[in-house]
């Protein structure tokens, strides 16, 4: 079966006066229908940039330099202008980080829903309104029939994120890109939003690219996980495997620096140093200056690929299963 989204060797370039930056480098992954792929990494690892490339919202001068993106088997990375616009919302929905700023404060949420549906679906104004109310009910807005005429400021943050999800899903896209959908929310609301996203996408068979830096969210929601570092894929695999037995030292470091109740009062692990700037990437493996397992050959070019560690981790010297107790 064709995957809903297929990214193949995607590279994004930002030409600057001081040379070309490469925030996304040679990244490949698929997302199957109904699957949730978690994309994790530090700020600047290129996870959002890859999402923006898929939906065609890269801010110039950033652009796709090479690689291919296929949506349901159709190539979409070269689409321009109105062709790309028709795809957005209709086939790819997007959820942003901050629900307080994602909604236009001057328009009723019902109008924002209907305008989205009318832009993509051949339905009448009154049908659109009915569907808007149904969409709000589906995301769990109480009294949807009345609240459809409310303005965004009349909702709380969690409710607004529900509205944003309703907006992203209202034209029934086959792929949702959720860019840090819970980061700006209260912890108590985060789980609800993740559960909602999970339920809606499972019901409709929508594929989800869940971009986050929160390992807890990944563990909770994702089927598979892609770990990104300095614009490249560090590790890609089923969530259970990657989180419990990471092969890449970076994933291992990330897991070690995530607070877990089971670990008791032990000190949290730190990965020494910081992610390199895009204009000063080291030779070979981008992680080797910070890597506890680095050896002389880690600087050899070209750097490691997923094929170097059981097709899962881009590392010359992956952690062996027995190393990870």
């Amino acid at each position: 079966m064709t995957p809903t989204l297929s990214i193949h060797n995607l590279t994004v370039d930002i030409p600057t006066r001081h040379g070309t930056l490469r925030p996304v480098q040679d990244v490949s992954y698929d997302i199957a229908q109904g699957e949730i792929l978690g994309v994790v990494g530090e700020s600047g690892a290129g996870k959002s940039m890859a999402g923006n490339a898929v939906i065609g919202l890269l801010n110039p001068p950033a652009h796709i330099a090479s690689g291919e993106i296929h949506l349901n088997g159709t190539r979409i990375d070269h689409l321009q202008g109105d062709d790309m616009r028709r795809l957005r919302g209709k086939h790819i929905g997007m959820v942003f980080q901050d629900p307080l700023t994602s909604l236009n404060p001057l328009l009723k949420i019902g109008d924002q829903l209907t305008e989205t549906m009318l832009a993509h679906l051949d339905i009448s104004q009154s049908d659109a309104r009915k569907r808007a109310i149904a969409a709000l009910e589906e995301v769990g807005i109480p009294g949807a029939a009345q609240r459809v005429d409310s303005y965004p400021h009349q909702f709380s943050g969690g409710m607004r994120q529900r509205v944003v999800i309703a907006l992203a899903l209202c034209a029934e896209p086959s792929l949702i890109i959720a860019d840090e959908p819970t980061t700006a929310l209260d912890v108590s609301v985060q789980a609800q939003i993740i559960a909602l996203l999970k339920r809606l996408c499972r019901d409709r068979g929508t594929a989800v690219m869940l971009i986050t830096h929160d390992m807890g969210v990944i563990a909770e929601a994702a089927d598979r996980v892609a770990v990104m570092y300095a614009g490249q894929l560090a590790e890609l695999g089923p969530v259970r495997d990657v989180l419990t037995v990471p092969l890449h030292p970076y994933t291992d470091g990330l897991m070690g620096s995530t607070p877990l109740a089971s670990r008791g009062k032990a000190r949290l692990h730190q990965i020494p140093g910081a992610m390199p700037r895009l204009d000063t990437l080291p030779d070979g493996c981008a992680f080797h200056p910070r890597c506890p397992r680095a050896q002389a050959d880690c600087t050899r070019n070209p750097g490691p690929t997923l094929a170097d560690a059981q097709g899962r981790a881009a590392c010359f010297h992956p952690l062996l299963r027995e190393d990870v107790a």
Partner: peptide
Amino acid sequence: YIRFARARGL
């Protein structure tokens, strides 16, 4: 919200 409006394909 302008980015979001674009992302909704308006």
